[in-house]
Computed example of a mutant assay.
Amino acid sequence: ARTIERLSRPGRILVVDEAFMDAVPGEAESLSGRRDVPGLVVLRSLTKTWGLAGIRAGYVLASAEIIERLRSIQPPWSVSSLAIEAMRACMESTALDQAERLAADDEPVRQWLTDELQQLGGDVVPHPRAPFVLVRFPDNGDLRMRLRDTGWAVRRGDTFPGLGPDWMRVAVRDEPTMSGFLDQLSRLVP
């Protein structure tokens, strides 16, 4: 958060994507409550934790001036009735409590997964906190496809600027699922 804070300048708009922040226990690095950072725009998703990617529901936090500028270009009917109902459900106190429990439960599995991926020769982006781990297996550009052929789907990394086909985003799931994934992965990497 402090690093991002230092990027702020008067006249500059600083957009921070916190789509997965609810997957971080306690949301310690969140900027969503900050009002002292000029030009700060925080984007949050209400549907990542619940696997509602098709709903595309979220919200923007910013100064009243920036919100008004965004509102002026907002299309009519930008949120469907289904998305509104999903948003309501995702913001109920029981859902927020459950998201916090899920985030806490994922932490040890994410750390174990990270350690295992490194043991298999993967270059893991340090200190993952989201419900996924970004990993690269050098010289294994078709690894993702070989995993797919064995029934394991991982997100390709080459759709993110600066990453190539040897990068993958591995979702953190329960330990038995991750164990099966790692077992299969160990058969595919040299």
Rank of each mutant, 00 (worst) to 15 (best):
D123Q: 13
E116I: 10
V60C: 07
V24R: 01
L134F: 13
P190D: 03
L188V: 06
T114L: 10
V124N: 05
Q184M: 08
D22M: 13
G51C: 15
R34Y: 02
A28F: 13
G164D: 11
R34M: 04
L96M: 10
D123N: 12
G121C: 02
M21S: 12
L163R: 05
L46P: 12
W77F: 15
G54A: 08
L188I: 01
T177C: 14
W152E: 00
A83K: 01
E18G: 06
V154H: 00
I55L: 03
T150P: 08
A153D: 14
D158K: 00
A53W: 11
W152M: 04
E100F: 06
V41M: 08
R146G: 01
G151M: 01
A95Y: 05
D17P: 11
R69A: 14
L7D: 13
V124W: 00
G54E: 01
P165E: 07
R148N: 12
T114F: 10
R12A: 11
L46R: 10
G151Y: 00
T177R: 14
G51I: 10
D123F: 07
S30G: 06
N140T: 05
E116T: 11
A153M: 14
S72R: 12
S8Q: 07
F137S: 01
I66R: 09
M87K: 07
G164W: 03
P76C: 05
R187D: 08
R6A: 02
T150Y: 03
V42H: 05
R187M: 07
V42L: 08
A153C: 13
R56L: 07
T177P: 15
I84Q: 12
V172R: 08
R110A: 09
R146C: 00
E85I: 08
M87R: 09
P25V: 01
R88H: 12
P108M: 04
Q184W: 06
W152F: 05
Q118G: 14
L43P: 15
L102H: 05
D166W: 05
A95D: 01
R69G: 14
L82A: 15
V135D: 01
R69F: 11
V154F: 07
D166G: 02
G157L: 03
L7A: 08
I13H: 14
S8C: 06
I66H: 09
P10E: 13
L31D: 04
M21E: 11
S81W: 09
S186N: 00
D158G: 06
P76D: 00
A23G: 15
E29S: 13
S80I: 03
T159F: 13
E27I: 11
L185R: 02
A89P: 07
V37Y: 02
D183K: 15
G180A: 05
D158M: 04
T3Q: 11
R2K: 14
D166M: 04
R148D: 10
L134Q: 12
R101K: 11
P108R: 06
I84T: 12
I67H: 09
E27V: 12
D149M: 05
V109D: 05
T150S: 09
A99Y: 07
